[in-house]
Design a protein around this nucleic acid. Structure first.
Lengths: 164, 164
DNA sequence: TATTGTTATACTCTATAACTATA
DNA sequence: TATAGTTATAGAGTATAACAATA
């Protein structure tokens, strides 16, 4: 059942009887575990948790003006990222200063060193990922990446796809 | 950064600078969340937890002779599925009887009713998934499915792909 | 003595509620 | 009074350790 390579073209769902493929979640979940297991050593080597890395990634894209917004963007609880931000700030990887206009809020931005670290880590991670992807036929590889990108975009908070 | 639709063909990783695509895990994780959120109402409607559904799915494929092996196969702790098996058994969805040859072990199998429920639930779940996949161009849809199937197989305990 | 299943306990992660400061 | 951030507390989920039955 895991090895039926029959492609049934672009037909819809089967009528009723037995499923023709595993559930998507049943395939996506183990894949995610594989990916995270591959990331872990890289993150460890640089003293980053998964959440810390997510913060670095997101700040790099969009400088942000409240911690709550950042938490939202990376789908974390606002209370969960506080320790993460404390650590990143103390290591000089991010800057975090009160907004002059509203001193309740904290303006968050990535430091040069933070960006350097982010690049290093992401490069290493994606290098590992490419090794995985290399096991696919080129056509499938491209289709997989395009499909994944499109489907994951549907899940984002903004749900539009582009910028933010 | 999320909207660079440039495809760079089948080339390897970029030399050093800025990443050309999000990390795989950063796309797979939200996708998994979407899929699980879509499954939840279906499972709820039939009084199944995620783990219970995983048990039904796996028993359908391969009748199994110890609970530990089942737990292993679905990547759960052996202590975690006990309550699940208790429930499924009491509802007549699975059978669980001591192995005559080794009365320590429990032979696990799916009942007819269990198979019926499994089919109903999986059919509903995959119907929802097809709605998601329908948003992809047919070529990407097929490549995505093939790539996903191949990559997820690498993560399985057997790691060979087929039956086990 | 080793193994299967089970129960009891501890631990990790995450979210909720209460508090401080600004507005 | 309302909101951003923080801290303290409680809850869910999971794994570890101890136990009973069988081999």
């Amino acid at each position: 059942m895991a090895d039926n390579a029959d492609q049934e073209g672009t037909a819809g769902a089967p009528p009723e009887g037995r499923a023709t493929r595993p559930d998507l979640a049943a395939m996506v979940a183990p894949l995610l575990r594989t990916l995270m297991a591959a990331e872990q050593p890289v993150l460890d080597a640089h003293g980053l948790t998964m959440w810390a890395y997510a913060v670095l990634l997101h700040l790099d894209e969009t400088p942000i003006r409240t911690q709550a917004a950042l938490a939202d963007a990376i789908r974390a609880d606002k209370t969960r990222i506080i320790a993460v931000l404390d650590d990143l700030e103390s290591r000089g990887l991010i800057r975090r200063r009160p907004d002059p206009n509203d001193r309740r809020a904290r303006l968050l931005s990535l430091s040069a060193e933070g960006r350097r670290l982010r690049d290093t880590v992401q490069s290493a991670i994606q290098k590992g990922e490419e090794r995985l992807l290399a096991q696919l036929p080129p056509a499938d590889r491209d289709g997989f990446l395009r499909g994944l990108q499109a489907l994951s975009a549907l899940a984002e908070p903004g749900a539009g796809g582009s910028g933010r």
